[in-house]
């Protein structure tokens, strides 16, 4: 069975859905933060988020890069990351910066 057999052929993008949803929700909750957030703190939060995403790993059966898995690049690779977690962290930072400028 090919990707094209799925109705409207959304399969290639479906593993990116948690990333997009995490980004949107992150922006939503990021706008609810106030106070100062300097660049060092933002970089620290991002790096901690990346580390946490690697610890959490990709969701089960996710096989593509946008899904957080490197399996398609390196067969049998154990390294993966939680794409929605990174999306949420980036969204939170974007929402926080956007609310500060508003």
């Amino acid at each position: 069975m090919n990707w094209a057999d799925f109705p409207l052929n959304l399969v290639p993008f479906s593993e990116a859905t948690p990333l997009l949803v995490g980004l949107i929700l992150g922006v939503l909750f990021g706008t609810q933060y106030r106070g100062k957030l300097d660049s060092k703190m933002a970089v620290t939060i991002f790096l901690l988020g990346v580390a946490a995403a690697v610890v959490l790993g990709a969701f089960p059966y996710f096989t593509t890069i946008e899904g957080g898995s490197f399996e398609s690049l390196v067969h049998g690779a154990a390294l993966s990351f939680a794409n929605s977690y990174i999306g949420a962290v980036i969204g939170l930072l974007i929402g926080k910066l956007a609310s500060r400028r508003a």
Partner: peptide, 15 residues
């Protein structure tokens, strides 16, 4: 950072 990362974890859990 702890509050923001915990919020991100909540979002990760719902997705």
């Amino acid at each position: 950072p702890a509050a923001m990362l915990t919020t991100a974890y909540g979002i990760y859990v719902v997705t």
